[in-house]
Amino acid sequence: MRSFLSGSRRRVFAGVVIAAAALGSATACGDDQGAGTSGPVYFGVSGPKTGPSAEYGRLWQQGFDLALEEINAAGGINGRKVELKWEDSQSDPKQTVPIATKFVDDKSIIAELGDFSSPASIAASPIYNRGKLVQYGFTNSAVDFTKAGDYSWSPSITLDVFQERNAEWISKRAKKVSVVYLETDWGKQAFQFFEKFAKEKGIEIAYSSPVLPDSTDVKPILIKGREANPEAFVHLGYGPDGALVVKQLRDVGFTGQFFGGQNTPQFISLAGAAAEGDIVNGVFTPADPDPKVQAFVKAFKAKFNVDPGDFNVYAYDALHVLVKAAKEGGATREGVLKALKSDTQFTGIGLGTFSFDQKTRRPLNVKPIELILREGKFVPTGNR
């Protein structure tokens, strides 16, 4: 194509292009530092706001909202307001991958929180590690999650620890059980660990079967489990499927002890009276007399008019931990990583005071607590 610019105009135009390119380069360099030294500090959240796991995103949002209110009222990070950039993943691996790419490319984001399920997080881990952006999978209990690299961290107790404690507590109440578990990678791994520890602790698994996450009728499976004459029924899964299992378990006539579901308002509401006496693993109970816990419970109830549960606490604690890291290491991607690697003490409502094992990037010496459902609330059994 022929140019109609004169020589002088061509030189001016070229100068503008060079200046613009230089400005863009300078801006990009500044962005690489993690949003510079003024304006809000951003954390990315990859989590479910719609879809089958949306309830967990709602619980996260409550925990984040209270944490943000407290953090920003206290001056944020060195006077800078803390804000979240949330992308709805539906906890689907197909969506977490492009979200990870988006977050890595957004240089204002200094760390990422999520995703809800371990498979959804694991799918995105290579992108976060290549992009050198901390992926803080605060609800990811799958053992393999943190194996992706130096930028994958989780304060979550792993499935092997959960299932060893689960088997230990069950062995005190039953020696013969039937088990149902989610037909997902997470569910299969949970069952493998439970099966291993059940054998070690003298528990006979009389019957076992996977159940599809979107099942609406599992009675044929439960009838077979009931006919194996177990002393107790064990469910390895989430809240909604746990509620379905325990309600239909009672419908087919099983009246024995149930171990399963989750410490969430959704499970308690959906399961209703069928879950009375249910026993679960947990990290938190509003009945904990610790003054710090009671102050949190009071603030949460004042804001949302309900008691907090595990997933509110997971989100609340996660944001506080990353903010502490950014304060200590610097409000940059490398600053957050530096603090996670060097800080020997973090605190939370759910885990108390803890530190990270630098090899596994998991919390050290943290154990779940045993909770029992009494009149619509999970309370401690006294076992740890």
Rank of each mutant, 00 (worst) to 15 (best):
F4C: 08
F4I: 14
F4R: 15
L5G: 15
S6L: 11
S6T: 15
R9A: 13
R10Q: 14
V12K: 09
V12L: 11
V16G: 03
A20K: 01
A22E: 04
T27R: 14
D31F: 12
Q33D: 09
S38I: 09
F43D: 00
V45D: 03
G47R: 05
G47Q: 12
K49Y: 11
T50Q: 07
G51M: 09
A54F: 03
L59V: 06
W60M: 11
G63H: 05
F64E: 00
L66C: 10
E70R: 13
A73R: 13
G75K: 06
N78L: 11
N78Y: 08
G79V: 10
V82R: 06
L84S: 14
W86G: 08
D88M: 07
S89W: 11
Q90V: 12
S91P: 06
D92K: 13
K94A: 15
Q95C: 04
V97F: 13
V97L: 12
V97D: 06
V97Y: 11
I99G: 05
I99C: 11
A100E: 07
E112N: 15
L113Q: 01
G114F: 02
Y128C: 04
N129R: 11
N129C: 10
L133T: 09
Q135I: 08
G137Y: 08
F138G: 06
T139W: 01
V143W: 15
D150C: 08
P155A: 12
I170K: 00
K176L: 02
K176S: 07
S178F: 01
V179Y: 01
T184W: 00
T184M: 04
T184S: 12
K188C: 02
A190T: 12
F194H: 02
E195V: 06
F197N: 03
K201Y: 11
I205M: 03
A206W: 02
Y207S: 02
P210Y: 00
P213K: 01
S215Y: 01
T216K: 13
K219F: 00
P220E: 02
P220L: 01
L222Q: 04
K224F: 06
G225E: 07
N229Q: 13
N229G: 05
A232R: 03
A232K: 04
V234M: 05
P240L: 10
D241S: 13
G242W: 03
V245H: 01
V246Q: 02
V252Y: 03
G253Q: 11
I268V: 15
L270G: 02
L270E: 13
A274C: 08
E276V: 10
E276G: 12
G277M: 09
G277S: 13
N281W: 08
A287C: 00
D288W: 01
D288R: 00
P291S: 04
K292Y: 06
F296K: 10
F296T: 04
K298V: 14
D307P: 01
P308F: 05
N312R: 08
Y314T: 04
A315Q: 08
H320F: 05
V323P: 04
A325C: 05
A326Y: 09
E328V: 15
E328C: 15
G329Q: 05
A331R: 02
A331C: 10
R333P: 09
V336F: 01
L337M: 08
A339G: 10
T344P: 14
F346T: 09
L351S: 09
L351I: 08
Q358T: 11
T360L: 14
T360P: 00
R361Y: 12
R362D: 01
N365S: 13
N365L: 10
E370F: 08
E370C: 08
L373Y: 04
G376V: 12
P380V: 07
P380S: 01
R384C: 07
